[in-house]
């Protein structure tokens, strides 16, 4: 299978999710005697060829051009579409990041191929791949296989697949004049960064999340205090978001973000079905709740029945002490 991976970068830095996608691409190609290529778009991004080569790409399509300096669906859609055509890709892999989810359907429509969203595992048998993806926010999983002989695209859920180095000698092919300025209708005028120093839940390995048990917006500080030394992000239940205590970008759940961090710490969250749908694939779940009957405990790896206002600050102290010991 000729597999093309879209490598996402911001400010010249490759996203971890793209390294995961390259590793999946490498494994797919190894299992099917396929060839792996990567495409990167941006300005001043030529050095990224090395990174992609380290993670298994044999061919790098590089669009290093002012028109790719900021992401736009139109320009990136044309750029990736062009690389796919030049390479003759059978399979296109994207990460299911904000950019990947916006871009992949545009490219799939241009190439008139199918797209499978948010894949979390795959298996190769007789030269063909079957993919698994969550439906109903992870209440169930569907196994889907591309119809024979058809090219297709897939987005891969971040944080699920390992990024493994597998260096390959690689050739670089420049994508020239893939896009004209007149092709770009929707333009990104600016990027407003959210509150400084706080990681996005979608990208965090560790999430400290608070629900209605937080009692008010002022108390999210104690979650930030725990998240900081852990290098984590702050999440929330919908109850807390709807109360206006914290922005909706922090909401975890079926109508918020679906996350699978290595550690999810749920504080004052009861564990409603819609919340669980967003975090039940976390590797380790810690629940802190004063109600021993709270459904969240059914899912928790470790549970503490107690008052979060007592437990969380003590955890913060203990984490700081642990980090200080190194």
């Amino acid at each position: 299978m000729k597999t093309l991976v879209f490598v996402e970068q911001r400010d010249g830095k490759v996203k971890k999710a793209s390294l995961e996608a390259l590793s999946v691409g490498r494994a797919l190609c190894d299992a099917t005697s396929g060839a792996l290529a990567a495409v990167v778009l941006g300005q001043g991004v030529s050095a990224i060829a090395e990174v992609a080569g380290k993670y298994g790409a044999e061919t790098m399509y590089i669009g290093d051009d002012a028109i790719f300096a900021a992401y736009s669906t139109d320009s990136y859609g044309l750029g990736v579409g062009k690389a796919a055509q030049v390479f003759g890709a059978d399979v296109l892999l994207f990460s299911a990041t904000a950019m990947g989810k916006d871009l992949a359907p545009r490219v799939a429509a241009r190439l008139e191929i199918g797209l499978l969203s948010d894949v979390t595992s795959y298996a190769v048998e007789n030269g063909g791949a079957t993919y698994r993806r969550p439906v109903y926010s992870g209440k169930a999983y569907a196994a889907a296989a591309p119809k024979a002989g058809k090219s297709y695209a897939v987005t891969l859920r971040p944080n699920v697949f390992a990024a493994t180095e597998s260096p390959r000698p690689h050739q670089v092919i420049k994508l020239e004049n893939a896009v004209a300025a007149s092709d770009v209708k929707a333009v990104v005028e600016s990027l407003l960064a959210s509150k400084e120093g706080l990681l996005d839940v979608a990208e965090a390995d560790i999430i400290v999340s608070g629900g209605r048990g937080m009692k008010g917006p002022e108390n999210y500080k104690i979650l930030e205090d725990l998240a900081k030394p852990l290098g984590g992000a702050v999440g929330a239940s919908r109850a807390a978001v709807d109360a206006g205590w914290i922005g909706h970008e922090h909401q975890v759940g079926q109508t918020g973000k679906v996350v699978s961090p290595t550690l999810y710490i749920a504080c004052g969250i009861s564990g409603a079905i819609q919340h669980l749908a967003g975090m039940s694939t976390s590797k380790v779940i810690v629940a802190i709740n004063k109600d021993p009957e709270a459904p969240i405990f059914k899912l928790a790896t470790y549970g503490i029945v107690g008052d979060l206002f007592d437990v969380v600050p003590k955890m913060t102290e203990a984490v700081k002490a642990l980090k200080a010991r190194g």
């Binding site: 797209l115 079957t130 209440k139 999983y141 889907a144 119809k147 297709y152 039940s280 790896t301 437990v311």
Partner: peptide, 24 residues
């Protein structure tokens, strides 16, 4: 449809959790 659905599964049950006792 571009893909054929081969089947559905429920997520694997999570391993039994552990409740931590004692003082805070």
């Amino acid at each position: 449809a571009a893909f054929e659905i081969k089947g559905y599964e429920l997520p694997p049950p999570r391993p039994e959790g552990r409740m931590l006792g004692g003082e805070v």
